[in-house]
């Protein structure tokens, strides 16, 4: 059953900031459940734009137009209510951004608070512990849950943001270069975490770092100038790319 309908599918998705130029051109790709898919490409290739469209972030900015279809479990999200879509699709941004006025505890639960969902104290405690454990942050912060999230290190903050996104039980987790602001050790931590997390959520990650894509993803996309140049098994894309442009990028002859 599950293999019939992909978790997420782009169908001729086009995104434009101005009338003349398209940032993303006719991207079509199907993404399977419980996989990690990496999106690579030189800066300005439209990879972040494509990723953000899955969370309807473009709705916040009136100039951006999205055409084509983006299907989540077979439903076109472009025709759905943004707040409904965003609850089913989580997002983690480049720079860790825990809410500075909330404690670590409240940060994990912020999705519920923002959506006006009331929980009992026991439910809250359970969710906080479960999520912090699943991002392996629990042991580090269990005694300082009432401290502000901004006191944590960059890597810890980013894991807190992942926990915050996971707390809403999203079907898909989008990650926009989540480790580019972190040091190598924190990056390694997060990569291990993602490999663990793909059991419960489908991950789509934009990355600059080819090594990272190779280490964690099972599928990879390569985008260039808004086009999806190549999409397939990471293994194959790295060892035996079909397109010249992919080859050039992987050998460092491009961006």
């Amino acid at each position: 059953m599950e293999s019939v309908t992909p978790m997420l599918e782009f169908k001729k998705t086009c995104i434009s900031y101005t009338k003349q130029t398209m940032a993303v051109k006719y991207v079509s790709a199907a993404i399977e459940k419980n996989t990690i898919t990496a999106i690579m490409g030189p800066s300005g290739c439209g990879k972040s734009t494509l990723l953000r469209a899955v969370n309807l972030m473009h709705n916040l900015y009136p100039n951006i137009r999205v055409d084509g279809e983006i299907l989540l479990n077979g439903e076109n999200i472009l025709a759905m209510e943004p707040i409904d879509v965003r609850r089913r699709v989580g997002m983690v941004f480049q720079r860790p951004a825990p809410f500075p006025t909330m404690s670590i505890y409240d940060n994990v639960l912020s999705g519920f608070a923002l959506n006006g969902i009331k929980l009992s104290k026991a439910e809250k405690d359970a969710i906080v512990e479960h999520r912090l454990r699943s991002v392996s942050l629990w042991d580090e912060v269990k005694d300082v849950l009432n401290k502000k999230g901004t006191f944590l290190s960059g890597g810890q903050q980013q894991r807190l943001c992942i926990a915050r996104a996971l707390a809403m039980k999203p079907d898909v987790l989008l990650m926009d270069e989540p480790t580019s602001a972190l040091d190598p050790i924190a990056t390694k931590h997060i990569e291990e975490l993602l490999l663990e997390l793909q059991k419960e959520v489908t991950i789509l990650i934009v990355t600059h770092n080819m090594g990272q894509a190779k280490r964690i993803s099972s599928k990879s996309m390569f985008m260039y100038l808004g086009e999806l140049v190549e999409y397939g098994d990471t293994e194959k894309l790295f060892t035996n790319p079909v397109d010249e442009r992919t080859k050039a990028y992987l050998t460092g002859k491009m961006g």
């Binding site: 972030m57 997002m91 951004a97 809410f99 999705g111 923002l114 915050r164 996104a165 809403m168």
Partner: peptide, 26 residues
Amino acid sequence: PTDLKESAYSLGATHAEVIRKVVFPV
């Protein structure tokens, strides 16, 4: 910061909720 507001949106908040729960406190 835009980061914070986008984070809140990505968790499913409406504009009004972002203002009440993120913009005002910050």
